[in-house]
Write a protein that binds this DNA or RNA. Structure first.
Lengths: 372, 372
DNA sequence: GTGAAAGCGCTAACAA
DNA sequence: TTGTTAGCGCTTTCAC
């Protein structure tokens, strides 16, 4: 049903290549011819077939965005930011959800590979080896993970975890727990390492519970374990788990922050809506989305070589940047002093959240050189 | 860099057509040849180029899912369900976000059109005329809207709104408000009509406020208007707005449900986490996603005719089903009796939510015949 | 069971 | 400025 370039050529009495030029290099065609062709195209409802075009140019003007779980409110802001940035550069974003499943992840990335000019791998759960293999098939930017030799956009959750632990230490807590996230999560490793170190140097004990599904349910399921462990403060892998935990504790009659303090990570919109409002490590998700798109499209024209060639391997790129984005601790109402120390009743709704780091996102860039 | 069919043919010493068959019609090729080809393909990391394949077969095995706002928690369950169902049928789903922008919507659907076998238009904001035009270019299933002549999956928010209003009437409320959603929303119309009728026949007054952005902010911005209007109960376009409104009222010192009752729509996960827990009209979003995929893929083999032909126009399909999915009112803690009537202090956490309709989702199907 | 050849819709040299 | 030609990677007749 859809009109092809040939239909338009026939209708406007020119050769198909002229029609082609009208769309892909308008300045090379006589204005009069152009309007005629355009008119016919309009009338026939002709639209260039992007897939066919891609077959030749090697450029689809699409980018793929692979997400572990669309239902996790952490991701939508990142998706939106990536889409906005891509749109500016005349690209479309196709989002695919892997359901936290490494196998689905691999399959989807392969399915997408040929239909996009590059892929953003967001919080990948697959192995580094697999990621490297994939990157040989299609240009990749990794988000929320460090893979040597590949462009990466990371958020400094290590620093965030440290700040959170220090905040809890400052409130007098010495028995701490960390609710781990999913297996294979880089963020998880970073948090664990940093939180462990911070607790140790503060003379506190840190119990690690996990791995767990990074969801509200994952958090609430841990409530009894948290109670039985005797800790007075908890750092959760993300806000969803923190909120779930608070719910779970509530059912057990344990109050937050009076009995137990809870800190999340991500600062999702929801964390401001729950009671108590959640103390959390804010991650610059929108900035991450934008940055990743920029990095992917940086070498725009080099992504694929001109005629006859093949897609450029990532190794062809001369430099591979790795960017670390700052996080910041946002103190709200889910953390309070160690029980039995000072008791001002409840935490005041106060002068608003304190932000320990600069707002905005001053980023630290580490340039690296890749052997070619 | 990626290996092509020719590389594999060369490596395994057969003609490219044999390689092609090995992948698309394995039974037509000698087992021994097959294993040899497969081995070479494996070694070279060959994967058939889906775009090139699509050019011939007319089938991409992708479906597009166009969403008004990925950040709206209403959509993720629908997306997930659609993806799951698609995966069963060996299809991939590409999600695109339009930011509630009709123009972006149109552009995206066209960008997707040629790269997918069909498009799910979810809560479209564009005009019916445009939708019909789009449906001439690519098979379409519309979700959350009724367009005559096109397959549609709807949720009976009219019935839901009626149930909500009747619930409020039963609690003694007579001054009601409806917080309208975005302009161009079909759901919005349905709710307005049904809520208006229900209020009228109950002898109540219904003030309509809107249109508004269907977000938390959109809801909280209406708090003063709600206060000044003197209503005692509110039905919001969706849960997000309801939650925002509750926050906004809270800032004004107005308590829910003691001073004002609030009902949402959608039953997003969040509505169980806020305090008070939200009374809301549950919509069967997952079922909608599954159903839409089924309807799109129903005529699977007819979607595009075999060799030489063009994509089948929607009109070619013999029947166009329109499905209406049931909704149900879930009563939680954000609704209570008219102030100054009975005062049991606060609403009991009670015996859990009451569900007024059957759970599950018995669906009403309306079959229609389309002129061809 | 396999090869040869045509062609999907389009772009990119090269001529004219 | 326009037409001609070749071909992107693949599938699909049709012979053999």
């Amino acid at each position: 049903m859809p009109a092809t370039i040939r239909d338009v050529a026939r209708a406007s009495g020119v050769h198909i290549s002229t029609v082609s030029r009208t769309f892909s290099a308008p300045h090379l065609v006589n204005p009069e011819t152009r309007v005629r062709v355009l008119a016919c195209a309009e009338e026939l409802g002709y639209r260039p077939n992007r897939a066919a075009r891609a077959l030749i140019t090697g450029r689809t003007h699409n980018i793929g965005l692979i997400i572990a779980d669309i239902a996790n409110p952490f991701f939508p802001p990142l998706i939106k930011a990536a889409e906005g940035q891509a749109r500016h550069r005349d690209y479309h974003v196709f989002v695919a959800d892997t359901n936290e499943d490494p196998a689905a992840e691999e399959e989807l990335v392969h399915a997408l590979a040929k239909q996009v000019d590059g892929v953003l791998l967001c919080s990948p759960r697959m192995s580094n080896a697999l990621i490297e293999q994939v990157s040989r098939e299609v240009p990749v930017v990794v988000i929320n993970r460090q893979v040597t030799g590949l462009p990466c956009v990371m958020m400094d959750v290590g620093q965030g975890a440290r700040a959170a632990i220090e905040h809890l230490l400052g409130l007098g807590h010495r028995q701490l727990a960390l609710l781990g996230g999913p297996r294979g999560s880089w963020t998880n490793q970073q948090m664990r390492r940093a939180a462990g170190a911070a607790a140790r140097s503060g003379g506190a004990e840190l119990t690690v519970l996990g791995p767990n599904p990074p969801t509200e349910t994952g958090g609430s399921a841990l409530a009894t374990q948290v109670r039985d462990s005797g800790v007075t403060a908890v750092l959760a892998y993300n806000d969803l788990m923190a909120i779930g935990l608070i719910e779970g504790l509530d059912h057990l009659g344990i109050r937050v922050p009076q009995d137990v303090s809870v800190v999340g990570v991500d600062d999702i919109a929801l964390s401001r809506l729950t009671r108590p409002k959640l103390t959390t490590v804010a991650t610059p998700t929108a900035a991450a989305g934008r940055t990743a798109v920029d990095m992917l499209l940086q070498h725009d024209s080099e992504l694929r070589p001109r005629g006859g060639g093949r897609a450029a391997a990532v190794g062809d790129r001369r430099t591979t940047a790795q960017v670390m984005l700052q996080t910041e601790l946002v103190i709200r109402d889910s953390t309070g002093p160690l029980p039995g120390r000072s008791r001002p009743g409840s935490v005041p709704d106060g002068p608003g959240p304190h932000r320990l780091a600069d707002p905005g996102s001053p980023t630290v860039t580490t340039g690296g050189v890749v052997a070619s």
